[in-house]
């Protein structure tokens, strides 16, 4: 028996889950689609992913070092950001541009707002948009899978009927290097659901809203769902803890809002894709959504007028 006994506040046991474990689960869930992207788009895709991840982790490491903050790269969240960003880029993007994206994601969007848990926007999404407006040429130049044929059109912008449901679902079409295989992204999403890392509310509301609106307006449903960044956005980016609501009702509002904005941009906007912008716009609303969707405590009694007057 030790001389000095602990005097700690209850509870005295904790669940084994950690932030690091959760982030590792996200990496595991993304891995199949990322590896598949490398197979489809070749060594260039692998190089983009590697550059994004290494730059993201290095940025966070150096930022903490320079500002004498506790080192936080061990929580794996920078790996997730780098990986997600890389998967949202075309395989043909110059590597230095990918690196700039990673630096922007970690330094500008995440660390400058206080690091993990404090950023208001999803770092990978915001960085993708920064790259899109900075380097529109290389960000919209996609290649056909397993070939070097360059195209500027993802299925969303291509003539309808170009791609079959099967090729869309399994990712045999141009697009960002990790977003094309709906199948593997859904598998990753199911893994996260089973591991209780994410709740199904946001993905279902997001995808459901896009599906319903596409059907109503006569769009090709398969292209709407699987032809762009909807799956990776709805399953992996809109469910980012820090930048999405914590209440169940709030998650539904958030998901439906994302779906609505995505549809409006795709249908009426000048851009072929709207997933990133929709998530970014909804990110900004999260504090308000949270505030207005708080549930009442169990056995809630409205404070009487007397108490309100005194309080």
């Amino acid at each position: 028996m030790k001389e000095i006994l602990t005097a700690a506040s209850s509870p005295h046991i904790l669940h084994p889950d950690t932030t690091r474990g959760i982030m590792s689960d996200v990496v595991i869930a993304l891995a199949p689609a990322a590896v598949y992207g490398c197979i489809l788009f070749g060594w260039q895709a692998a190089a983009v992913l590697a550059v994004c991840i290494i730059t993201a982790v290095a940025s966070e490491f150096l930022w903490n070092l320079a500002l004498k903050k506790p080192q936080s790269v061990g929580d794996i969240s920078a790996v997730v950001t780098g990986l997600l960003l890389g998967m949202n880029l075309p395989a043909s993007i110059p590597l230095w541009q990918a690196a700039i994206g990673s630096v922007a994601a970690i330094i500008v969007v995440k660390q400058m707002f206080g690091g993990i848990g404090c950023n208001f926007a999803n770092p990978a999404i915001a960085a993708r948009i920064i790259l899109l407006v900075s380097f529109p040429g290389s960000m919209t130049k996609f290649t056909e899978p397993v070939s070097d044929i360059v195209t500027s059109a993802t299925p969303l912008a291509a003539e309808s009927g170009t791609y079959t449901l099967k090729s869309l679902f399994f990712g045999m079409h141009p697009g960002s290097l990790g977003e094309t295989s709906a199948f593997l992204l859904i598998v990753g999403g199911i893994y996260l659901l089973l591991r209780r890392v994410i709740s199904p509310v946001i993905p279902l509301c997001f995808i459901g809203t896009v599906a319903v609106l596409s059907l109503i307006s006569g769009e090709d449903l398969a292209v709407s769902l699987f032809g762009g960044g909807l799956m990776i956005g709805a399953i992996f980016m809109a469910t980012d803890y820090t930048t999405s609501p914590t209440t169940a009702l709030g998650k539904a509002v958030f998901g439906i809002g994302c779906g609505l904005i995505t549809f409006i941009i795709r249908k009426f906007g000048a851009l072929p894709e709207g997933v990133s912008y929709s998530i970014l716009l909804m990110n900004i609303l999260v504090p308000y959504i949270n505030r207005y969707t708080l549930s009442k405590p169990f056995g809630f009694l409205k404070p009487s007028k007397e108490e309100t007057a005194n309080g």
């Binding site: 700690a8 904790l14 848990g117 404090c118 820090t242 914590t246 549930s295 405590p297 169990f298």
Partner: peptide, 23 residues
């Protein structure tokens, strides 16, 4: 038993879901 390392809140909302009083 107790890991001493406390990391920043990532706003996962698990505490709210676990609270039987819905706080």
């Amino acid at each position: 038993l107790k890991p001493a390392v406390t990391t920043p809140c990532i706003k996962c909302g698990r505490c709210a879901r676990a609270c039987p009083m819905r706080l």
